[in-house]
Design a binder for these strands. Structure first.
Lengths: 222, 222
DNA sequence: TTTAGTTTCTAAACGCTGTTAAGTTACGTT
DNA sequence: AACGTAACTTAACAGCGTTTAGAAACTAAA
């Protein structure tokens, strides 16, 4: 008994304990919830602390900065995106369909997490060059899923001839640009309120189809 | 003489006059300069007023809000973009080359005005739906330049057959997505410091070429 | 079990921001 | 010349990010 006194006294509610337990996790979750509810401009460090039930200075023991907190949220969002793209990639064995599935997953992520998507790519979040940057790594990992699928598609289908620029990097960049651009436009445009995720998915299929037709010889229908 | 007393007394320096003359213009210019120098986060309403040599409350006689000032800056940026795209469209008579020129102009604008480009598309700048929004109109005008060129290209070249989705809107959206996505990625990516405008132009040509190949029957080389 | 050391938090303050209210100055008109 | 209006200033408010100093709780060794 005396060796485990904690069992005798019931654990107080997290909000009443002086030491939070996992404040870092709570701060990240609160930040995510605030961004989802009111956009990035509603994401205040003081409000995050308030939601977690701690003082305004408490977050500074877990994040060096407000930017540091935002960077961590963005990094986790990229990890989620990477997983979603990887799951989509495993949904089919056909390389072209796989590319379409990855693009659809990308757009679905943007619609599911609009607030995070809007600041995941902001360059001011990145650390200065030279310093290892988890956000940059997480973004590169997402891009890597696409690049792998592009490479597979290139091997299995003939790359359109007569085009000197259809290297891996250019093909991947073309696809990433098209899908990222579409996601941004649908998300930021005023018409985004009227456009449902279903419309977005349909447009994504069309846009990806258009691009793939330009890049691969084999034509594949929706 | 008495009818034009201003000529007798030399006009005092703008900074010394109580009435600024054209404070609205000065605020817009100062805002643009601040954004160009230090990004959007450096664009403070108080600093804008400081640069214009007026008190922090003065801007409120010309803009209802900080957002209102930002919206005006973004609107003017869209007007500049529209002009640049229109000029590029007139640079050639070939419809496909015209599309490439417009895309290159878009990317060149993004590189020339990165700070403005980064917030021109933020949806929180837009007015609530229903209210006539100059920013939305200016953006639609830019898009219109592209749509007109796409329409011309569709008439002059055969649209690739067997694709049910190659309507005007989808084609335009595909091109806009690809070019906008590429601009965003090049601008926001950490590698953007190393990528020169020339590299960007080259990538733009490749990406647009890839997309056009998917959309139009006639193949045209760079 | 006490003690020392370290981590995690609070309280209070700083300068900055966007914004508003009330008062002042200059302009345009009659 | 006087008045009404528009453009500005001064002063203040709450809220923000951040820092400093100190209190509280956990950890581990004596």
């Amino acid at each position: 008994m005396s060796s485990s006194p904690r069992l005798s006294s019931p654990a107080p509610a997290k909000s009443e304990r002086y030491h939070h337990g996992d404040l870092r996790r709570a701060l990240l979750d609160a930040a995510r919830a605030l961004a989802a509810a009111g956009g990035v401009e509603a994401l205040t460090l003081r409000e995050v602390a308030r939601q977690a039930g701690v003082s305004p200075a408490a977050p500074y023991h877990h994040f060096s900065d407000k930017n540091d907190l935002l960077r961590a949220v963005a990094t986790e969002a990229f990890e989620l995106l990477t997983r979603a793209m990887a799951v989509a990639a495993e949904s089919t064995d056909d390389p072209v369909q796989r590319l379409k599935a990855i693009g659809a997953a990308y757009l679905a992520f943007a619609f599911a997490h609009p607030a995070e998507f809007r600041f995941m790519f902001r360059h001011e979040l990145c650390l200065p060059p030279g310093v290892p940057d988890p956000l940059e790594q997480a973004g590169t990992a997402s891009y890597g899923v696409l690049l792998t699928a592009v490479e597979a598609a290139q091997k299995s289908t003939q790359v359109r001839s007569g085009s000197p620029d259809t290297e891996l990097s250019t093909l991947g960049l073309t696809l990433w640009s098209a899908v990222h651009g579409l996601s941004s436009i649908l998300l930021e445009s005023p018409m985004s309120k009227t456009s449902t995720p279903e419309i977005g998915q349909h447009l994504a299929r069309s846009v990806i189809g258009n691009v793939l037709r330009g890049v691969l010889t084999e034509e594949q229908r929706d």
